[in-house]
Simulated assay, not measured.
Amino acid sequence: MKSRNKGFFYFTIIALLSNDLKAANWSDTSAGVRWGSIFREPYNPHKISKTILNFTHVSQDDYGRNFLLMDYYISDMDDPSKDNATGAEEFYGLYRRTLSYNALAKEPINNNLIKDIHLSSRMDVGYENTHLSPRPFKVRLGGVVDLKIPKGHLEWGLEGVYQKSYNGITNRHFEFEPTLVTWTSWSYPITKKSQINGILEYMGAIGEDGFGNETKPLTILRANYIYDIGQPKGFKVGVGYEQFNNKYSSNNAIDPTKGSDQKAFVLLGSYHF
């Protein structure tokens, strides 16, 4: 990962954790790992084993919410690095900040359907040490609606997306066409010790990729079953399912390996501070 990206995310972690100590109404910070053996990559015929190290921070203050996620992917040799000496390594991180209508308005929302409405801004960065060497950078702006359900949390978002990247094979930076993304995320307790959570996201096509191929709409589904084996701020374990259609907006219909679609089960564990 580029040193400037490292610096940005380390600074963000420090800022968020400092904010927790001073003004957060609630927060949850965790470090964890996911593992699966049937991941796919576009134009790669193999099923790939990946270990994903993860850091996540969620908090709410008097004005809205913070969400920080950093994933570090380590692939086996079926997804080789640029020098073919090891499996590929990838970093992907994102930060979302929302501003709450209820926090800023004189009269909070009060009905049977909506709990709150947020303005949302998000930034993503990434890097992978493969021959393609992608360096995605994304900015998303829009809104999020918190929906009322009997228990747990359910939200729906709609955002505009601008993104650019780098193609290490053609050695050029390029921009994608702006598009819209809509998504919903949920967390629902089953028992005092267990819950299900996940996210479903749909993003429109983004024009041509770094090789001049037309992209296709992208769909992402992640769903997890989590069990608490300790105190609420302790160890959690679980199983998950991850599905990508047209991964990275690559057109699976013209991918001879069909690696642009992924259906993978994962084992996961985390420690919550």
Rank of each mutant, 00 (worst) to 15 (best):
L99R: 08
F11H: 10
Q195G: 02
H131F: 04
L268S: 05
R4E: 11
H46S: 12
D62I: 04
G160T: 13
Y43M: 12
I220L: 15
N171W: 00
V139L: 13
G160H: 10
D62K: 10
R172V: 05
M70V: 15
A223L: 05
K50V: 15
N19F: 07
L69H: 06
T257R: 07
F176I: 04
S133L: 13
A31K: 11
N251I: 14
N19T: 03
Y72Q: 12
K22N: 02
G87C: 10
R172C: 09
W186G: 03
G32M: 13
M1L: 11
L180P: 03
S75R: 04
E177W: 08
K151V: 09
K50P: 01
Y73M: 04
H118F: 06
Y63R: 07
G7R: 03
L221H: 01
Q163R: 12
W26E: 03
D209M: 09
T170L: 06
Y271S: 06
P150H: 09
S27D: 12
T257G: 07
K138M: 11
G168L: 10
I199F: 00
N171C: 04
H272G: 04
R65V: 06
S260H: 10
N54P: 00
R172S: 15
K22A: 03
Y101C: 08
K115E: 14
R135N: 09
S165E: 06
T184D: 01
S18K: 12
K247A: 01
P45G: 07
W26H: 09
W156F: 14
Y63N: 06
G64K: 05
P178T: 06
G93P: 12
K151R: 11
L113C: 07
S187F: 07
L99Y: 12
Y72R: 13
P134N: 00
I220M: 08
V181D: 00
L218I: 00
G198F: 14
F235C: 02
I196F: 12
W35D: 02
W156R: 06
Q60T: 06
D76C: 10
D83K: 10
H153S: 14
G238D: 06
D124W: 13
K193I: 08
E90C: 06
F91T: 14
A88G: 14
K138C: 02
K263A: 15
I226W: 00
N66W: 14
V33Y: 15
A103G: 15
L218D: 00
N84D: 13
Y162D: 04
F67N: 09
S121Y: 10
F174K: 02
P150T: 10
W35L: 08
R34A: 02
P45E: 10
T51V: 15
G230P: 07
T130E: 05
A24Q: 08
G269Q: 10
R34I: 01
S185M: 04
G87F: 11
G238K: 03
T184L: 13
E177G: 05
A23D: 09
D20V: 11
S27P: 05
S81R: 09
Y101D: 08
L132F: 02
G7L: 05
I229R: 02
F174C: 11
V145T: 15
V33D: 01
S165C: 10
D62T: 08
I190M: 07
V144C: 04
E90V: 05
K193G: 01
K50R: 13
L221N: 01
S59N: 13
I199K: 03
